[in-house]
Amino acid sequence: MKYAFYPGCVAKGGTPELYQAMTAVGEKLGLELHELTGAACTGAGVITERDPFAGDVVNSRTFAMAEQLGLPVMTICSTCTGVMMGVKGRVDAHDDYRERVNQLLADEDLHYSGQTDVKHLLWVLVEDLGLDKLKAMVVNPLQGMRLAPFYGCYVVRPSKDVDPLRLGRMGYLEKVIEALGAEPVEEYRGKDKCCGFPLLETNRRGSLALTGKRLAEARDAGADALVTPCPLCHLNLDGQQPETPEAGRVDAMPVMHLPQAIGLAIGITPERLGLHRHIIDTKKILAKVAVAG
């Protein structure tokens, strides 16, 4: 399985452990990842907020680069994924509009035909690799661990953009957690809600209140940790956790990136997964894995 790999800015900036974990996990799962080093930021919705046309062109540029390689794009960020799927919704379907977009790409001899597929790692696991295959690779099942799925808004909404064929992508994270041998916390109400990140600069109090709410819901549902396919959610849930109204509670809530959870189960060391680089200590999880393993 080959992909044009789009890591996104945060995996190479604020959450370097995600990039590190993905590289290790990709190798072991047999995913051939060709990194798009020349691709620009998706804009995380902010370029689109300021100038929707610019957002569409910048992302189509990325799709055109993948098209040159003849590969689908693979992302590891819910936000990147959502932005790209939204752009595809506008650009793929309308030939005239795509032509306008392509005019701005011509400078670099790029052209987007409207065909590039975009998939988050989470979708790759279920739709391309297959859960059975994933299960077969587990050497260190995360038994006895209750993991709360935390999707990140943009990988599940708007569903018409991110799940146009109605494959039930909202639900994949629970399935993956199960395949890793852990117990998904099905009743976790926060799973498809907002982590507060987009409000961080404009209403910090509201932002942290949302983060705190999501953490409290996880604790109330008896989760040992959260698992998220979105590094921006991670920045708030982990990085800002000490600042939330929930902080200071004895049982701080560790937050794993999706590839880290996979890595633990398929036998990659916590060090290589960068689990020591979190703000909230992950020892609690590691102790459980050690007992189970």
């Binding site: 800015c9 945060v10 190479k12 900036g13 604020g14 020349g38 620009a40 930021c41 804009g43 995380a44 902010v46 370029i47 907020e49 300021r50 100038d51 610019a54 910048v58 961080l200 600069e201 404009t202 920045l235």
Partner: peptide, 27 residues
């Protein structure tokens, strides 16, 4: 003159300069 507009403008500027985002500078 508000954080939201400043964020949007800084975002455009950073992506225009580096092609990518730097969360620390954005903040």
């Amino acid at each position: 003159q508000n954080n939201g507009a400043k964020r949007a403008n800084a975002f455009m500027d950073l992506v225009g300069s580096y092609g990518r985002l730097d969360e620390t500078r954005l903040l």
